[in-house]
Design a protein around this nucleic acid. Sequence first.
DNA 1: TCTCACATGTAACTAGTTACATGATTGC
DNA 2: GCAATCATGTAACTAGTTACATGTGAGA
Lengths: 188, 188
Amino acid sequence: MTSTLGFALLGLLARQPRSGYDIAAQLERGVGPFWHARHSQIYPELARLQVDALVDFEVVEQHDRPAKKVYSITDAGRVALADWVVSPPGQAAIRSELTLRAYSIWLADPRRAAAMLREQERIHREQLAHYEGDRQRLERSPGLADPRTPEFATYATLRRGIGYESELAEWCAWLAAELEPAAEQIEP
Amino acid sequence: MTSTLGFALLGLLARQPRSGYDIAAQLERGVGPFWHARHSQIYPELARLQVDALVDFEVVEQHDRPAKKVYSITDAGRVALADWVVSPPGQAAIRSELTLRAYSIWLADPRRAAAMLREQERIHREQLAHYEGDRQRLERSPGLADPRTPEFATYATLRRGIGYESELAEWCAWLAAELEPAAEQIEP
DNA sequence: TCTCACATGTAACTAGTTACATGATTGC
DNA sequence: GCAATCATGTAACTAGTTACATGTGAGA
């Protein structure tokens, strides 16, 4: 009965052992980057995974910093993760506040709406540029040809990030462009 | 201090008055379709909106069916909604379980992973076909040229749905195609 | 009588966010 | 002494899901 968050943590630990703190640092930015969590959710979840014997940890003393618990995935954890990956997903709940706003955009001031969308377009193009940089770097890696490497899996999620952000940026641009003529009409 | 769900409800009521039951029917499918909710969340939220005077209701008796509360948006509600639409969105939390799975796909059986992805591709192409049908119908409507009509706003969310689903379906197809040669290698 | 669609609610739970709390060690 | 980073946790709250609960009226 592992939660999606649990599988997100297992997915990180399958690549390398880490502390809760390290996981939190990754997950506050996002994995893949299609999942995220705060440390307050991560620490209890790690404890649960350990009870279920899907992860294990050892306390690592450090000379220059406080001691930490370094978690590793167990064989049972790897099996559970590999199984979850191919299990039929229940239909995903899409939630996009931006698109929800668009549903009521007909009520709004077109100038302000267009400005908000242009800003969103900028943000998503920026994220896209960041991903494109990652992609350039990753495409030089040798593991990419083999879908049984973590590099390949990282590349797959990155492609999704690029597709997602570029579609979103294009939509923002399209919608802003639709609103801009109406905005001029009010205040010429 | 209205929640996102509250604005989703206001967005529906801004178009026409409805009962909680009607809203639930729409929101269990999804608005726009980028937001959804169950009736157990809708009824209390409508009550809150009414306390805040953003909506109002009247009990409508019916001869053939049980009586219902028909909610309408108030002027204050319309102002709050129009204001929210253009307010700067805090960065959206993307959560995609499918993409999270891809992050650990290197551990999975490529045959089963490819099959799962082909099935997802099929589901998203089906949804896409449905949206394309809606688009054909909507594009005949006259309101589309004016961004101050609800038809335009519906069209905008539909475009987003089409972009989203087609990007997702393409990505599923790409990833499945990458996995299929590896799948053949195991069991020739 | 029984099932189905309409109609409205509450209770119990899971997931996720924000805030609170503590302590080690380093560098200023 | 104080702020910053590393490190781990808990508490209180909000959002969302699943399950429970009740009642009307139509049609088989």
